[in-house]
């Protein structure tokens, strides 16, 4: 299998879907002639032209609203946000229009849009550019949210997102764009709503999404090598819909859980999962559930300190040791 980076995997997914369906088009800032602020759409404008790759002015509310309106008439816009942090200027369009139009019309109108872009900290760009709004968006019934951790997952989830008939928001990660994974040549889809066990284990479940999955995997290596603890790593992949069965199944096996989540702690994705686990796996738990989140303050700029603010393997290991004690 070829090694392909996360960026290229998404690029391939977009190209394949543009070719498959004439209603798919990409719109966003710098997506066409400039090849994408993070080069995710590199080469697509050259291949597919102005109709399918549309450079928009810096008007997130305007072009996301345009995408919602166009999708109501059957187009399938894939909207790039340069950063998910910029979604807030378009929050009304995302929540009130994309999120509610099907419901308020009694199911008469569909909104098959995808909004995608990076949602992560760790790049020293300060608080305004480091938000991870997957928890906020997943709070809205009517929308779907996915957060791929690998190139393989990014490609398969992106293709499913584009084919889905509901609004799907894809949370990417600038720190992963250059990372490589094995990706098959032949076409595949990864369904929304299915988690993936990234590492089998018996002693504790580390449950994560997005880049935190890689942190959990690194922590699992340390736990095995230095503490003789065999951790299982569950990658949610999809936040809403959520594969609760996979989570519960893992905890039934290991009886312990640490949730790793780049969200801030208050009502982060991990808070939802902790609440669910205490209801559904209370008797299976041998210890309280632990959480490792981004430290609860706006994202600090200072490069060495930002590293400490984000979840990291060492913090996961310490938390796991407490939970296993």
């Amino acid at each position: 299998m070829a090694l392909i980076n996360y960026r290229k995997a998404i690029n391939d997914a977009l190209a394949e879907e543009i070719m498959r369906d004439e209603n798919v088009f990409i719109i966003g800032e710098e997506v066409a002639e400039y090849n994408g602020a993070y080069k995710v759409t590199e080469g697509l404008w050259k291949r597919f032209g102005d109709k399918r790759l549309v450079d928009a002015p810096i008007s997130e509310a305007g072009f996301i609203g345009l995408g919602v309106g166009a999708s109501m008439l059957g187009l399938r816009p894939v909207i790039e946000l340069m950063f998910w942090s910029f979604a807030f200027v378009a929050y009304d369009q995302i929540v009130n229009n994309a999120g509610c139009v099907r419901y308020m019309s009694g199911g008469l109108i569909n909104c098959p849009i995808v909004i995608r872009g990076p949602a992560n900290g760790g790049t020293n760009v300060g608080a305004t550019h480091s938000h991870t709004p997957e928890n906020i968006l997943a709070n809205v019934p009517g929308v779907k949210v996915v957060a791929p951790a690998t190139a393989y997952d990014a490609k398969g989830l992106m293709k499913s997102a584009i084919r889905d008939n509901d609004p799907v928001f894809v949370m990417e990660n600038t720190l992963l764009y250059g990372e490589q994974w094995e990706v098959p040549e032949e076409e595949y889809l990864i369904p929304l709503g299915s988690a993936d066990v990234k590492r089998e284990g018996t002693d504790i479940s580390l449950i994560a999404h997005g880049r935190s999955v890689l942190i959990a995997l690194a922590a699992a290596d340390i736990l095995a090598a230095e503490h003789n603890i065999n951790a299982e790593v569950v990658d949610l992949r999809s936040i809403r819909p959520l594969d609760e069965d996979a989570i519960v199944q893992s905890v039934r096996k290991t009886h312990r859980a640490v949730l790793v989540d780049e969200n801030k702690p208050f009502c982060g994705v991990s808070a939802q999962i902790a609440s669910m686990l205490q209801e559904k796996a209370f008797d299976d738990l041998d210890a309280p559930i632990g959480r490792v989140n981004t430290l609860d303050a706006p994202a600090i700029y200072s490069p060495p300190v930002e590293k400490l603010q984000l979840p990291n393997a060492q913090r996961v290991v310490s938390k796991a040791l407490t939970v296993c004690a």
Partner: peptide, 8 residues
């Protein structure tokens, strides 16, 4: 913007 999108 929805009206814009319908026309688009």
């Amino acid at each position: 913007p929805l009206g814009l999108g319908l026309a688009y």
